[in-house]
């Protein structure tokens, strides 16, 4: 699956640019590139619903992030315990990926998903729910409870933003 690896390398490169760019606007655009890469990968991995969703959500996130940025990032300063903290983080990351290299051998290889539960979804999904799109059948029928949670989450986020965007929180007596 060479396309997946290429897309992943592209996303990694864009992520490194996003992390290190001095200009915040470039950072946000680089994150947009990571998101577009993700959307393309979803297409390659045969998940068209997700590709569309990721594209839309990516655009929304970009709008939200750009609303929150000013032009310049802060100047680099190695103050305080910068060296200690950075070395700790890098060590943690190396240990993390090293352990993953060891443990991921026991996972099924790419392209060989064991679909114990999903076989039933594919076999009976259209029959029992009437939907041709099995993902829609799962999201809206088998696991509709999760979708209720998702809708509630958006609602909570909107109320949260309304709370934070208030002019006055506490009436001064």
């Amino acid at each position: 699956m060479i396309e997946i690896h290429l897309l992943l390398l592209f996303m990694i490169a864009a992520a490194v640019i996003a992390v290190e760019a001095k200009d915040l606007l470039s950072s946000v655009i680089a994150v947009g590139a990571v998101g577009i890469g993700l959307s393309l990968s979803f297409l390659v991995l045969k998940a068209p619903d997700l590709a569309i969703m990721q594209l839309v959500v990516e655009i929304l996130s970009l709008i939200i992030l750009i609303r929150g940025t000013i032009r310049r990032d802060l100047p680099f300063s190695a103050s305080g315990r910068w060296y200690f903290n950075t070395i700790t983080t890098v060590c943690f990351v190396i240990v993390f990926i090293g352990l993953a290299l060891l443990t991921f051998r026991s996972l099924p290889d790419l392209g060989n998903a064991t679909m114990r539960v999903s076989k039933a979804y594919i076999a009976e999904g259209m029959l029992r729910t009437g939907a041709k799109n099995i993902v829609a059948a799962i999201t809206l029928n088998y696991r509709a409870y999760d979708t209720l949670g998702e809708a509630t989450m958006i609602f909570a986020a909107v109320i949260g933003v309304l709370v934070i965007a208030r002019k006055t929180g506490k009436k001064e007596k």
């Binding site: 619903d49 997700l50 959500v57 992030l65 999904g125 989450m153 933003v161």
Partner: peptide, 28 residues
């Protein structure tokens, strides 16, 4: 067919992450 269950799960997860990003940027 590919596995539909991860796709359903990630569909929900994308929206969850959008909500959190929205709130974080508002606070920022």
């Amino acid at each position: 067919m590919v596995d539909p269950l991860p796709q359903a799960v990630v569909a929900v997860a994308i929206v969850l992450n959008l909500s959190v990003t929205l709130l974080l940027v508002a606070i920022a």
